[in-house]
Design a protein around this nucleic acid. Sequence first.
DNA 1: CGTGCAGTTGAGCAAATTCAACGCTTGTGG
DNA 2: CCACAAGCGTTGAATTTGCTCAACTGCACG
Lengths: 223, 223
Amino acid sequence: MLSLATTPVHSATLGSQLYSPWPSDALSDFLRSAGKLVTYERDEAIYHEGDASHYLFRVQNGAVRICKFRIEGQRQIDAFYLPGDYFGFDMQQQCRFTAEATTTSTLLVADVASFLSPGLKAADFVSAVWKTALRDLHRSQDHSLLLGRNAHVRVLAFLHDIATRLKRTSTIELPMSRQDIADYLGLTIETVSRTLSDLVRDGAIDLPSSRSIAFRSPVKGVQ
Amino acid sequence: MLSLATTPVHSATLGSQLYSPWPSDALSDFLRSAGKLVTYERDEAIYHEGDASHYLFRVQNGAVRICKFRIEGQRQIDAFYLPGDYFGFDMQQQCRFTAEATTTSTLLVADVASFLSPGLKAADFVSAVWKTALRDLHRSQDHSLLLGRNAHVRVLAFLHDIATRLKRTSTIELPMSRQDIADYLGLTIETVSRTLSDLVRDGAIDLPSSRSIAFRSPVKGVQ
DNA sequence: CGTGCAGTTGAGCAAATTCAACGCTTGTGG
DNA sequence: CCACAAGCGTTGAATTTGCTCAACTGCACG
């Protein structure tokens, strides 16, 4: 059994106190030992919607999109995973999304079986797994909120989000295409392009090349 | 220590096998014994964004919206919780949203402290808590995808979602206002109203009263 | 019976999409 | 090395979708 906190604690601590506390990169350490590095080319599928889910992942470099395709052919991107992000922990029997590399990417890939192999104290990872689930939930909630805003706000918030996650404050190299951004923001590629041009015109950003964004004012979140 | 599966299992089972399996309503049983019933009137706040999060909830009847308010005053609804739904488990230090009753609602409310009180085997609930988190994540993902569709599809999918969650196939009594629906779907109240009128005209639904929806064809999900 | 609130409907408008053209870069084959 | 095609991104014009503003209806409640 797991030991229990004896003082009244916050629900916040469900993930850190309630479950045995481990250094935050225990999961990374495990994946590094149990998994192997796999490189995916741009647009290469990592798994498909409906596949049985057998693997756990960590992005080492590059970027991954998880998306769905509608009968009419349109693609909707639910999330991007960037270097340092874990994914594959939230799945049940089947993959709910298709995962693809948006650019040449290296992933650490481990079989779920190894994660649950005898002798491994799976409970030690509960805290870390909980963290990834909560992080995904919060990102998804933020994404929903963002989709209620206009194109200008969506694009700017997207850029800021990517910058924050890449730990950059002044310039970023976008690891995805305009089409990827459009499908994530629920816009068309033309609207994304026009909005970026507007942002340059307004002096919010510079666009030294189509994949690099330079912020004129320091990066901060959108209300 | 928790016992471990000795056969290779699915990541799907992280929530059911990895952690000690409990009847799915163990959480409900616990909340029933540790919590108390509280009734909230329509539009009454249950907690506010930024509050310290101290409680866990289960909707007994009525409905709850979790939402954010923008500086300009607009409200965005992230999710509705309907009878049988748990919430409050996903929170960290602070409440990320404001929770309000959309209609007179009764909730089972328990202090987090009681959940973590000495002698209670919190690990027994990990599976159930994990389930609520995954359910919230999947709903949020579906919500994001929905916001990429047009008004017609959004409204119809919303009605179908509510019907499914209320376990109804032919008619539902909406537990929220047009404004609530609009703020959830990222539309205006007028567009929701017009779309409902269109759906009646198209023969998809009947509207015996503004809060009750009768489906002409059996309820099924939207791709 | 009047007032207020929720919902509906209409007319004009604005934002984003669609359709189309064009420029730039990259890769390929002569 | 150049010519050319393909892919990606940008820009323009017309169209569509959903929004804004406004009026109006129905209903509940005093």
